Simulated scan of single mutants.
Amino acid sequence: MFSVLIFSFLGLFMLLIKNRIQKKIAAKAELDRKMAGLELQSLRSQMNPHFVHNSLNAIQYFIQRNEVELSEDYLVKFSKLVRLFFEYSRKQTLTIEEEVTLLENYLQIEKLRFEDKLSYCINVDEKIDKEELQIPSMLLQPIVENAVNHGLFHKKGNGLVTVDFKLIDSNTYMVTIKDDGIGIKKAKEFYKNSVKNYQSSSTIVLQERLSLLQKSKNWEVTYSIEDLSETNRGEGTEVNISFKQKYL
């Protein structure tokens, strides 16, 4: 009788372990499915019709002004950015070097479109190994896009976007994206008749991706956004996002 109880207990214990393992496998599969879907959403948000339309209009504008070299330069940069979007959207992570390349190409196109109204600066801490340190893919560009389109687009005069990568420790770093535009409060006033317009598709995808990264247990990510005019720190918006890669 005692041996029967022991075997029954062991059988129940093994069943519980099996069910727990199956639940973990199912949860991971669901998370992977959501991440794959979100990668496609990220690509769609970055290749949004407004950006493509504005870029093609700019190329046409330069052609009409008979600025052939400028239009060719714009077209080459635009083609390279499209290729990078498709290439990087298939990856879960990028190196810092790849991320900087993507941001450089995006900002170069926006700088051409804004015609000297836009300046940018990307700084990488010299302690960071750009070829080794990883970052979740398709995450920073939507933030930079918001800085340009919501922060600087409605500003009178020139605008500046800065992106700073700073090493915190061996596997933790901070990225600060700052613009000297009109700030969050004023930007919302431009879109007060439609909250949906201010909450762009890139912003929504960003929020979902941050949430999934936390659930993936591979990254510890903190995110904050601040209207500098409300803290007497000048004008514009500052986004701070820290990344800590967990080694399981």
Rank of each mutant, 00 (worst) to 15 (best):
M1S: 13
V4R: 11
F7I: 12
G11Q: 04
L12I: 12
M14T: 08
K23D: 15
A26F: 08
A36V: 12
G37A: 07
L38M: 06
S42P: 01
S42T: 00
R44S: 05
S55R: 02
N57E: 05
A58C: 13
A58S: 12
A58P: 08
I59W: 00
N66Y: 13
V68H: 12
L75H: 08
K77W: 04
R83N: 15
L84Y: 12
F85S: 01
I96K: 03
E99G: 01
N105Q: 13
Y106G: 03
L107C: 00
Q108K: 12
E110F: 02
L112Q: 08
E115T: 15
K117G: 11
K117E: 14
K117Q: 14
I128C: 03
Q134M: 10
M138C: 09
Q141P: 06
P142I: 00
V144T: 06
K156C: 09
N158F: 13
T162W: 04
I168D: 01
M174V: 13
V175P: 04
D179H: 06
D180V: 01
G181C: 07
G183K: 01
Y191F: 13
K192I: 09
S194M: 03
V195A: 08
T203D: 14
T203Q: 15
E208A: 08
R209W: 09
K215M: 14
E220F: 08
Y223S: 02
Y223N: 05
E226Y: 00
D227H: 01
L228N: 02
T231N: 06
N232R: 05
V239H: 06
I241W: 02
F243K: 01
K244T: 05
K246A: 02
K246F: 08
Y247Q: 13
